[in-house]
């Protein structure tokens, strides 16, 4: 089996403070890997380091069996950041943003062909935004903007999809649209690495989970069962109707 991503003894520090410490990870073709962990555990830093957006202070990263420094086949990677980029002082339509995801595949200075246009159109339809293609992204809800970003990544027809907290603060309809798009991508033979706080509707798609704790990998294997979202350290779920309340709200039960 070929490796899509290999991190060996990776370490990252921000102004002297270690965020990742001696972390090793191999992602194989066809894996649907969830990187779980509390806020501040370093899980987002892990994928940002894997993509070369954050420099390693130690260790090495290989993408598609090529050292990061010599890696040039970026069109094989579809990246979905946490949020829409900060630079959006000028309105842009959903289609314009998604079309930017096709540029790597299309080649520098090449005009778009019929295939490029179809890929952009299909990616928008896949996340259920077909009717919003000509609307400015600023008028979409947070979940729809997030869907625009996954469509942008899919438009390049990548082999590896890397998603940074795709479902954080996203409405239920968008989470379902997300899960659907991921399933179609995985069925087509794609590999996925996603950072998540809670899996929600993405859970059935995930085949392997890694838990990052304090800059190292604390678990690698199936999605940890008992550590469902209720056991999550940051989980803040209130159960006003739960039986262990002892007394009912009205005092007698």
């Amino acid at each position: 089996m070929t490796s899509v991503l290999r991190i060996e003894h990776g370490a990252v520090a921000f102004s002297g403070r270690p965020v990742l410490r001696d972390l090793s990870l191999i992602v194989h073709t066809g894996d649907v890997l969830a990187i779980l962990g509390a806020n501040g555990s370093g899980k987002s830093t892990l994928i940002r380091a894997a993509l070369g957006l954050v420099p390693l202070s130690d260790g090495s990263v290989e993408l598609f069996e090529t050292p990061l420094r010599r890696f040039r086949q970026w069109r094989r990677i579809g990246y979905v950041p946490q949020r829409m980029g900060a630079g959006s002082g000028v309105p842009a339509t959903v289609r314009e943003v998604v079309a930017a995801g096709r540029l790597g595949k299309r080649g520098f200075l090449r005009p778009p062909g019929a295939r490029d246009r179809k890929a952009v159109h299909d990616a928008i339809a896949m996340v259920g935004l077909g009717s919003r293609a000509k609307d400015p992204v600023a008028t979409l809800s947070g979940g729809q903007q997030q869907r625009t970003l996954i469509a942008r990544a899919l438009a390049g027809e990548p082999d590896l999809l890397v998603l940074d907290e795709p479902t954080a603060g996203v409405d239920a309809a968008s989470q379902e649209a997300f899960a659907h798009a991921l399933r179609v991508f995985v069925d087509g033979g794609g590999t996925v690495v996603l950072v998540a706080h809670e899996l929600g509707p993405l859970r059935p798609v995930v085949t392997r989970a890694v838990v990052v704790h304090d800059g190292v990998i604390a678990h690698d294997g199936p999605v940890p069962e008992p550590a469902g979202h209720h056991a999550d350290p940051d989980h803040d779920h209130v159960h006003p109707h739960a039986p262990d309340h002892g007394e009912g709200f009205w005092g007698t039960r």
Partner: peptide
């Protein structure tokens, strides 16, 4: 200009 980090990861110059 819209998303410089994304552009980097897509391999644009």
């Amino acid at each position: 200009c819209q998303d410089e980090e994304y552009a980097k990861v897509s391999g644009l110059p």
